[in-house]
Amino acid sequence: MSQGKQFLFKLLLCGDGAVGKTSIREQYMGKGFAGSYMKTIGADFASHKTEIAGNKVTYQIFDLAGQDAYTVARKSFYKGGQAAFLIFDLQDPSSLHNLSTWIKDCIDNSGGTISTFVVLGNKADLVETRQVSNQMAIEYCQRIAAESGLTFVFLETSAKSGMNVGLAFDLMGKRLLEKHNIDVTVDLPEGTEMITPGDFNESGNSVEVAQATAVAEASSMKVEGLSDDLTGINSRLDNIDERLDSLEKRFGKLAQLMKKVMEK
């Protein structure tokens, strides 16, 4: 029996802020789930060793901050990457809608070395507040596969319960090892899909995807509207400051006049 080989893979966890990237990493590392949210600053790093089909695999896991404020700071972390988890929140359609931006960032900032992607719909345990159905997510992945020419694997996860978290990393290892001509068998649960560029049928695209896009655009409009409101408030505050300065000058002049009157 031939001995397995050793592999080192650099993986990136990508997705909007608060979708559960760090929680997925911590759950996979055996550290359990922390209910409190702590924002990742720039990027965080962890290393994990595992065995897949007799091969020793080391994952270098880079957990990237999802907030727009860190767009520039996280660019350097893509270099040398081979694969990425694209993570969105099943409660938030806009986080699904933004995956195409994360794909572009991965490819552009890595120089094209990141070409293997696994899409994770996280927080599947929050059934009552869920806004993205399994079919909606699959059809959106079909759309971005058609646009990018890439192949994706999609599955749902729960960082809280650990559902499919280990499986997600096994699937990633399977896809990476297959590029080295090593066949790996992984049993896929219901709802897990391998999505290729030819799977998208525009005429048969469901209304749900359009709804997801509409919700994401509506959310964006609300943010823009809030920004306009804040601009208006700042403008009013500036006017108030100017008026206060004017009043202070008038009171100063009045105080000087009163002083002269008292001296007389």
Rank of each mutant, 00 (worst) to 15 (best):
123 K>G: 09
188 L>D: 02
174 K>S: 02
140 Y>P: 02
184 V>N: 07
189 P>M: 06
181 N>A: 13
185 T>A: 11
113 T>L: 08
115 S>F: 02
118 V>R: 06
161 S>E: 13
147 E>L: 12
180 H>E: 15
171 L>R: 04
103 I>T: 12
181 N>G: 00
119 V>F: 10
172 M>S: 10
153 V>P: 01
133 S>D: 01
105 D>E: 15
136 M>S: 07
136 M>Q: 14
140 Y>W: 15
131 Q>M: 12
177 L>I: 03
169 F>V: 06
154 F>W: 11
124 A>G: 07
103 I>Y: 12
121 G>M: 05
100 S>M: 08
143 R>Y: 12
166 G>A: 01
172 M>H: 09
109 N>Q: 15
104 K>M: 05
128 E>N: 14
175 R>A: 14
110 S>C: 03
122 N>T: 11
146 A>Q: 08
121 G>F: 09
118 V>K: 10
125 D>P: 02
156 E>H: 10
161 S>M: 08
183 D>C: 07
121 G>E: 00
183 D>G: 02
120 L>G: 05
173 G>D: 10
149 G>E: 05
176 L>R: 08
119 V>S: 05
106 C>L: 09
125 D>Y: 05
155 L>D: 04
184 V>K: 08
112 G>D: 09
118 V>S: 08
126 L>K: 14
144 I>V: 13
120 L>S: 04
114 I>Q: 00
129 T>W: 01
160 K>H: 06
122 N>Q: 13
167 L>G: 10
138 I>P: 00
166 G>N: 14
163 M>C: 04
113 T>Q: 11
176 L>Q: 03
124 A>V: 05
122 N>I: 11
130 R>M: 07
187 D>P: 01
134 N>D: 10
181 N>E: 12
143 R>I: 00
134 N>V: 12
149 G>S: 11
181 N>T: 10
147 E>C: 02
121 G>S: 06
188 L>C: 10
108 D>A: 07
122 N>E: 11
185 T>F: 01
166 G>Q: 04
137 A>Q: 10
114 I>F: 01
116 T>F: 02
128 E>C: 11
182 I>Y: 08
148 S>K: 13
132 V>A: 07
105 D>Q: 15
108 D>G: 00
119 V>L: 09
128 E>V: 13
177 L>Y: 09
167 L>N: 08
164 N>T: 01
164 N>Y: 06
146 A>L: 02
103 I>L: 15
102 W>C: 04
104 K>E: 13
165 V>Y: 05
103 I>P: 03
165 V>N: 06
118 V>A: 08
145 A>F: 13
183 D>S: 15
101 T>G: 09
174 K>V: 02
114 I>E: 01
100 S>W: 00
